[in-house]
Nucleic acid binder design. Structure first.
Length: 795
DNA sequence: AAGGCGATGTTTTTT
DNA sequence: ACATCGCCTT
């Protein structure tokens, strides 16, 4: 630690003198990225090029050269996981001193810390609560309900997403541009303003506010800005391509003085545009920070040549990119493997077999352990087929990124009780649990409490107390309500003890006796809260199959308290660090979304569901056009580059989409794979195979997808045989494409997605149809039935 | 106040 | 297909 307190003027000599083991083994580009300390630096780090290594070495270098002390470095990430990893790796260089890196964390965690110091500048108190999305939604519902809005047509969810987007763009209510005036039935900005007002009175803020309030403070208070600009001598940002406008402003303000900012990212891995990330931030970096050094990390240490070549070829299809040329010294390895299947279940079955084969070490490859294999899907509903299959064959798997621990209902309920114990005025927490477990306090009783509280401008807990005193609430609800608020007062008294921070009025009025056996630890208190409130009992009495699991989660929650000194600290942690650890015990295949896989790598990767509409996602293309398609293509790039040695891409000809069978065309990305790096696998008896070529058209792809039209299929039909891979369920499908009626110009037809329409022109099996509702489209004939047969659409 | 039924909308996800 | 949600019944 004393090393870092060295006189900064000695830094030049220090640099020469001190050994710098962290530089060992860095390539030239990485070394440049590490040693270019002054001024703006953009580190364009392609997939698998050792960016985390460079980033941590850069921090080590800043410290080692005496440029900054640990507390003077601001290092920002997006996820807690990334922050943890960086901390661990920097810890490898620093040892204990890593604890001095007080400003290594997520945008939100660091913002919260800054905001607690300056809360009063935006009308908050420094002990503000951070709302989760449930609370946010509940609040918005109230605001909407107060205006007698039809919440069917204008749901709170919609408003929440609109407000989030505005916050991502750093628009405060008075800054929302007039082009957005139509939002939420012309009342979006009005509700946004009302929501912000409500938050202020609740002394609360949502996730977006953490950033936005910081930006406001830094913009409006030059002295504060200057303090922090001087404090953070060096700034590092990971995953810069994922920053939104608010984060960009936040960074630009803090870096505004010395401009010692190093942003690391990869425009080709920008896959979060839909939640406000602006690829433009990274594309514009040199303009935003004139004189910036741009360092490209292009040597890939992860994948074999075939894999890297395929990924590079695919991503080259994007227009809007800075451009990098990844290269590797690795061997060529295995080509990518491409295979088509009859349907999604067949695909899952085949992948399951492959995984078993690979884990036994067939092929010319060493065995892969289950931990080394992953299935990366575009949409989480695809996971189900794999889970079903793997359960039946007993293949251990783990789903990464399911519902998270702290988002489970019982955990949130328990947290609401803890929040009330810490701050009885937390109305949102009170609303959440007032009738959980059931206390006979329905809408009516809750309305009375609300009204009474508002009349005296007090918290709901106090309002409930008043309502009881005044006899406004009667019946069996009254007794239970009294027990609840007495409980809250008692827990609160035990947490705070006499003194500042305690709501003395509440304690005096409702639970005047001091706790009997004082010095109850926070863990015991938490247990007692869940006991006293009847919450544990509620789940004990619950006979549904998930009840035991929920009780386990509550136990786990209590256990998590061991890592904290008090409930307050725990609550702050949970508000910002909502992630869960994976059980690392048994080796398992990972199943996750492509988004969830970013930043990870696996020796063997399966990429199923490469079908147009699913991947690239139809919705993405409909909503964002070419930009959407490019983001999908980046997702394909992310997927392929996760693989170290073996990458297997697959598609199915038929898939159940929302319960309906649909024919699928192979993804256009399949066509974009470079044939020389791909081996096309052919399931026995089904496919003619054929290497996809860049020149192939939509019809070609339809033809390939059209398994039941393939020579192999016809042969099997003729011989009365059944292909090994034809699933039993397939019987109900229309499989004889030769029976396809020929359509004539002018015929009225039906398409299950586009509805009714008239055939405008016919070109082989390709029809041009003017749909009544969805406009004119080119459609392949097999998706069409005559209008009078609309009721028995064949999928 | 609490459980059952039909309309509804179904990518991706962090904090 | 399926889950979620709000309304409606008891």
């Amino acid at each position: 630690m004393s090393d870092f307190n060295a006189d900064l003027s000695l830094s030049a000599r220090a640099m020469a003198a001190r050994p710098a083991p962290y530089l060992d083994g860095l390539n030239d580009a990485q070394r440049l990225a590490v040693e270019t300390l002054d001024g703006p630096v953009l580190m364009l780090a392609g997939a698998g090029t050792g960016k985390t290594r460079a980033l941590t070495a850069r921090i080590a270098h800043l410290l080692n050269t005496g440029r900054a002390r640990p507390s003077e470095i601001l290092a920002v990430t997006f996820t807690n996981k990334a922050a943890r990893e960086m901390k661990m790796r920097v810890g490898g260089y620093l040892g204990e001193a890593v604890e001095g890196m007080a400003w290594l964390g997520t945008f939100h965690a660091i913002s919260a810390k800054l905001l607690r110091r300056h809360a009063e500048l935006v009308g908050l108190k420094s002990n503000f609560t951070i709302l989760d999305s449930d609370d946010q939604l509940r609040l918005l519902k109230q605001i909407i309900a107060a205006e007698n809005i039809d919440d069917k047509r204008w749901p709170a969810r919609l408003l929440a997403s609109i407000i989030d987007q505005w916050k991502n763009r750093a628009w405060r209510p008075d800054q929302v541009p007039s082009s957005e005036a139509g939002a939420f039935n012309n009342r979006g900005t009005e509700f946004y303003a009302a929501y912000q007002e409500r938050l202020k009175t609740l002394n609360a803020c949502d996730f977006g506010d953490l950033l936005l309030h910081c930006v406001s403070i830094l913009q409006n208070h030059a002295d504060v800005l200057e303090t922090w600009q001087r404090r953070f001598r060096y700034i590092l940002v990971d995953e810069y391509q994922d920053t939104n406008v608010a984060q960009y402003l936040w960074l630009r303000l803090l870096a505004g003085g010395h401009r010692n900012i190093c942003c690391v990212g990869d425009d080709d891995q920008s896959i979060y545009g839909w939640r406000g990330a602006e690829v433009g931030n990274i594309l514009r970096f040199e303009r935003d920070f004139p004189g910036a050094h741009v360092v490209r990390l292009e040597q890939n240490y992860r994948s074999t040549r075939h894999i890297l070549a395929a990924a590079s070829h695919v991503i080259a299809g994007n227009e809007d990119r800075l451009g990098k040329t990844l290269w590797t010294e690795a061997r060529a390895g295995e080509k990518l493997r491409l295979i088509g299947h009859w349907d999604g279940e067949e695909e899952a079955r085949w992948i399951g077999e492959q995984i078993e084969d690979l884990s036994r070490g067939t092929r010319n490859l060493a065995p892969f352990s289950l931990d080394q294999m992953a299935i990366l899907v575009r949409a989480s509903h695809q996971m189900r087929a794999f889970e079903d299959r793997f359960l039946t064959i007993g293949l251990p798997y783990r789903v990464i990124g399911g519902p998270r621990f702290y988002e489970r209902m019982e955990v949130r309920d328990a947290m609401a009780y803890f929040r009330l114990a810490v701050s009885p005025a937390d109305d949102l927490a009170f609303e959440r649990i007032v009738n959980t477990p059931k206390r006979g306090l329905g809408d009516k009783a809750q309305q009375i409490i609300q009204r009474r509280a508002r009349a005296s401008d007090v918290s709901l807990v106090q309002g409930a107390g008043l309502a009881l005193e005044e006899g406004l609430i009667k019946g069996r609800g009254a007794g239970q309500l009294r027990a609840l608020i007495e409980g809250i007062a008692r827990w609160h008294a035990q947490i705070s003890g006499p003194g500042p921070g305690r709501d003395d009025d509440l304690v005096e009025r409702i639970a005047p006796m001091e706790p009997a056996g004082d010095a109850l630890g926070h863990i015991e208190l938490a247990e007692q809260i869940l006991e006293d409130s009847g919450y544990t009992e509620m789940w004990l009495n619950d006979k549904t199959p998930e009840a035991p699991g929920r009780l386990d989660n509550l136990k786990e929650l209590i256990k998590a308290l061991e890592n904290f000194d008090n409930l307050q600290g725990f609550l702050e942690h949970v508000a910002l660090i909502m992630d869960n650890e994976q059980d690392g015990s048994e080796a398992k295949v990972s199943i996750m979304t492509l988004h969830g896989a970013k930043g990870l790598e696996f020796p063997a990767v399966f990429l199923p569901g490469w079908e147009d509409g699913l991947f690239p996602s139809q919705r993405s293309m409909d909503e964002s056009g070419i930009k959407g398609l490019e983001e999908e293509r980046r997702l394909a790039y992310v997927g392929i580059t996760r693989a170290e040695q073996l990458c297997t891409i697959s598609f199915a000809a038929n898939r159940r989409v929302y319960g309906q069978w649909q024919s699928q065309m192979p993804s256009r990305f399949v066509d974009e794979l470079p044939a020389e790096h791909v081996e096309v696998l052919t399931p026995p008896g089904l496919y003619g195979g054929g290497i996809p070529s860049a020149a192939s058209t939509v019809e070609d792809r339809a033809q390939r997808a059209n398994v039941y039209n393939s020579p192999g299929w016809r042969r099997l039909q003729a011989s009365g045989g059944r292909p090994v891979s034809q699933p039993r369920e397939a019987k109900n499908m229309v499989i004889d494409a030769t029976a396809q009626p020929a359509f004539e110009v002018g015929a009225r037809v039906f398409h299950r997605k586009f509805g009714y329409g008239l055939v405008a022109s016919v070109d082989g099996d390709k029809l041009y149809i003017v749909f009544e509702k969805s406009g004119a489209k080119h459609v392949v004939a097999k998706f069409i039935v005559p209008a009078d047969r609309a009721d028995d659409v064949p999928f």
